[in-house]
């Protein structure tokens, strides 16, 4: 267990990868290296190609052209599969086995599995260990699924929407586990619908749209792509006039308030006041990841 920086076993590399289903290009010319002790969050709307991208790393889907490798081994090979622990979206374990029986079985698949006690501590399995999967609550089921993803002690952990439907407390428990894994030098690839989750956890964010990576950077860099500021105000000025103001990237109506995302908030406001339009109840905030995400995917949509 020396420097995690030298550990490239959990590195996923996509080289010239395309995936075409019939006439639909699910993944479009993907060249990407993910991993090495980082947490990478993959964001995108439904149909953006996230699941296909993950499935190709797991060896469940074969690229139409190009190659995917895990730490140098071809995706889907036994060697590659041993390096990965995965929690797939909406995959339910057989109900008749206990959590312990499930874990014990999965441990036999790996060369150096995590010890049961260690896993119980890490994921918090004490109360559910001897219960059958079928009687667990939603949050407990997710924990059992996480335990299976981690029990092989793989260098790469892939989590597809791991915290969907969890309450805040359970989600934070997941976050703690995920942070601990990254601190131990594991690579984590996460897809999520919760942008605050990506913001809280990720070292790197990839935004996908139409099968392409349309943005790639740290959370701060991605947020900066949105142009930075949200101006919220109440006005009866027509949309056309507002969108013509300098710096304006997009407009959204929220109730009786208008949200303006602006690249240069100061100039937008100056022009707004100079125009003599009636405005009221103004607030200015830094654009969060959500605004950045909408902005990026909208632009990608317009470009396509």
């Amino acid at each position: 267990m020396t420097a995690s920086a030298t550990n490239t076993q959990g590195e996923v590399a996509y080289k010239g990868v395309n995936k075409i289903y019939g006439k639909m290009q699910a993944v479009d010319q993907l060249n990407l290296t993910i991993g090495s002790g980082q947490l990478t969050a993959l964001l995108g709307e439904n149909g953006a190609g996230k699941t296909t991208t993950i499935s190709m790393a797991l060896g469940l889907v074969k690229p139409t052209t190009g190659a995917v490798t895990i730490g140098g081994a071809p995706a889907g090979s036994m060697q590659a599969r041993r390096r990965i622990g995965a929690m797939l979206q909406s995959a339910e374990l057989p109900e008749q086995l206990t959590v312990k029986e499930h874990v014990r079985l999965f441990q036999t698949y790996y060369e150096t599995p995590m010890l049961l006690d260690e896993l119980v501590d890490l994921v918090g399995l004490e109360e559910i260990l001897s219960k059958r999967y079928g009687v667990l609550s939603g949050g407990q089921k997710r924990r059992a699924q996480l335990a299976l993803a981690l029990c092989g002690n793989g260098d790469l952990i892939m989590l597809d929407e791991p915290t969907v439907g969890l309450d805040v407390e359970a989600r934070h428990m997941f976050w703690r586990v995920i942070r601990k894994l990254v601190a131990e030098g594991k690579s984590v690839l996460l897809t999520t619908h919760y942008l605050e989750e990506a913001d809280a956890l990720a070292d790197r964010i990839l935004v996908m749209a139409g099968g392409r990576i349309v943005a790639d950077g740290t959370p701060a860099e991605i947020k900066a792509l949105a142009g930075g500021k949200i101006i919220e105000l109440r006005t009866d000025a027509p949309e056309l006039v507002l969108s013509a103001l300098p710096g304006v990237e997009s407009l959204t109506q929220v109730g009786d308030r208008t949200q303006i995302i602006s690249a240069k908030a100061e100039e937008t406001l100056k022009a707004l006041f100079a125009s003599g339009l009636l405005v009221d109840d103004i607030s200015v905030t830094r654009a969060g990841l959500e605004a950045a995400f909408l902005n990026i995917t909208q632009k990608a949509g317009e470009a396509a």
């Binding site: 469940l60 036994m78 995965a86 797939l88 995959a91 339910e92 374990l93 698949y109």
Partner: peptide
């Protein structure tokens, strides 16, 4: 049933033939 529940995908991704 296991295929519908997504379980077979987990098995296919796991390092077992």
């Amino acid at each position: 049933t296991e295929r519908d529940r997504g379980w077979l995908e987990v098995k296919r991704a796991a390092p077992m033939p």
